[in-house]
Amino acid sequence: MSEDILASQSNNLKMDPDRENSAGDFVLLPDWMDRDIVYHPRKDRDGFVTKSVLKLLSVFSRFRQNSRVRETRISVWVKFVTVLTIILLDALATNMFFVYINLALVLVLMVTLDSKSLKPVFFQAIIGTAIAFIICAPAVFLGSGRSAIIISSKVFVSVSLVGMLGYTSPWNEITSSLKVFHLPDIMILTFDLALKYILLLGDICLNMLTAIRLRMVGKNESKESALSGVLGNTFIRSREMSKDMYDAMVCRGFEGQYIKKKLHLKKIDIVVFVFLACLMALFIYLELDYAGSI
């Protein structure tokens, strides 16, 4: 656009925001703005924006659902420790019986889930198990069918337990549970902030993609430029936000130390730990028994 054209138009149209305007001080609209056009858009393959928006929406919906997770009576850190221990025992188990007990336990726990959580947890576990079985398939043909079944069962147990933990516990409490393993509090804070900013920056991305979608009213010859604009702006916003966050923390007296509150043990948690101890005892007994039989 040449400066001359702009200048000539400015004389007619300009309405200076730096100037006080009264109610009667109207801007003159260009003639093309007065005309209603019959617009026939050109065809374009622009499904990527809609698909990106839908994908982001599903991820956010998962995040938001997690923030409204129904509190279970068992403390999250106890669930976290229990899940990790069972996964570890299950992975180490060489006795089929122990694996089957864990499988039965997982199926019983799944029954207690509400339908909204059950569906994704079950499907994730099934997909994981199917992939594991496909990878182990050659073993079946080489005469080690038992190994393929054990590994697939172990994958089902592990993926289901992690899924159930994720769907029944707020993520900020899962990160807090890391304190059990004596992780520094500042590291837990970093995890918490990472989760928070995934949501915030994702929200920014989603809004920008929505803005693009609303303005994609025809054929876009440079889709990659619009997409890189979203990524670039999100990066700039993330830098600004991290600086603002640090400044806010300094204003609130942050000096590099972050102290997380201690974890408490409830009565139901003791019951869970007793159950876990029984499971560990069973594991040791079955493993010793299995080793003796060889």
């Binding site: 656009m1 054209i5 702009l6 007619n12 149209l13 300009k14 309405m15 925001p17 260009p30």
Partner: peptide
Amino acid sequence: RRVGDVAAMLS
């Protein structure tokens, strides 16, 4: 033309 007009309208 549109860009020029709108830019002028909105300073």
